[in-house]
């Protein structure tokens, strides 16, 4: 079975929840497919009585970039936030189904352990009211990963990893708020990288940035792809096409189509996907 066939089979399951339950086993990864890092099967999500995700099944591949696209309110950010249980701060929010990180259920992992393995970068850069150095050092300190010279080395490594080191190496002890928006977002990524996450979730990380800062972040994603699995929610279709290896299209709480990005943008199998990406939606 080819990679594309396997991906299409996943989608078929998404579109037919009953069948998906009957055939919960997912096809073996194709010969050229990386291993599955996050496995979702029939994931539902509720805010109180309101269901906002229905039967989401997908394989997020290890050390690849997966983009989630779809109109506002379609559930893509909710799905992203389910992966690190960010929703738990919301009253009456509840997720069901099977969601595995490697072979462990995300719902059963201790939260600090999960958050260490699955980092997140938000739409709006959110530096702590601390120095640039202390922002990056925060995670390693909390998790007791390093101190002293080793901590300084880790901060430098993370800032280099986020392509920010050259710009801030002489002002590490200045406030993070002195940085530009694009720099602050790269600082957020450096902060996430400092605890060496296995997965990095990015929720519209470039939506507040200019094209130059956006290009820097996109290059950064390519650079860190070989060390962690990236899942990015974006409204920018061109960005999904540029950076992602795989793309999932969400609509009204369902994952309508999930496939390799080139197939999604040249020959999508679902009319809803075609209508959305060509701007004929609605």
């Amino acid at each position: 079975m080819s990679a594309t066939d396997a991906a299409r089979l996943d989608v078929t399951q998404n579109l037919n929840p009953e069948k998906a339950q009957e055939t919960a086993a997912v096809p073996e990864a194709g010969r050229n497919q990386p291993a599955v890092k996050i496995k979702a099967r029939n994931v539902d999500f509720f805010y109180g009585p309101k269901q906002v995700l229905q039967g989401i099944s997908a394989d997020i591949r290890e050390r690849r970039i997966t983009a989630l696209i779809g109109p506002s309110g379609c559930g893509k950010t909710t799905f992203l936030r389910t992966i690190n249980r960010m929703y738990e701060t919301v009253k009456n929010a509840r997720a069901d189904g099977e969601l595995l990180l490697d072979s462990e259920s995300i719902f059963d992992l201790a939260l600090p352990h999960l958050r260490r393995r699955v980092g997140m970068v938000f739409q709006k850069p959110n530096p702590f009211p601390k120095s640039i150095f202390d922002n990056v050092a925060y995670g390693p300190r909390v998790h007791g990963l390093a101190n002293g010279a080793r901590l300084a080395e880790l901060v430098e490594q993370s800032l280099r990893g986020a392509a920010l080191w050259e710009e801030v190496k002489d002002s590490l002890h200045k406030s993070a708020f002195s940085l530009s928006g694009g720099q602050q977002q790269r600082l957020s990524i450096a902060r996430a990288l400092a605890i060496d996450p296995e997965v990095l979730l990015l929720d519209e990380p470039c939506s507040a940035l200019d094209p130059i800062s956006t290009a820097k972040i996109e290059e950064l994603l390519f650079a860190i792809e070989n060390r962690c699995t990236l899942v990015i929610v974006t409204h920018n279709m061109a960005q999904a096409a540029r950076v992602a290896d795989y793309t999932g299209f969400f609509l009204t709480g369902k994952l309508v189509e999930f496939n390799d990005t080139k197939t999604i943008f040249t020959n999508p199998s679902r009319k809803e996907t075609e209508d959305y990406i060509t701007g004929r939606f609605g």
């Binding site: 096409a241 943008f265 040249t266 999508p268 075609e274 060509t278």
Partner: peptide
């Protein structure tokens, strides 16, 4: 226009 899908084809 950066066309995609059937428009691109």
């Amino acid at each position: 226009e950066q066309p995609v899908a059937s428009d691109l084809r």
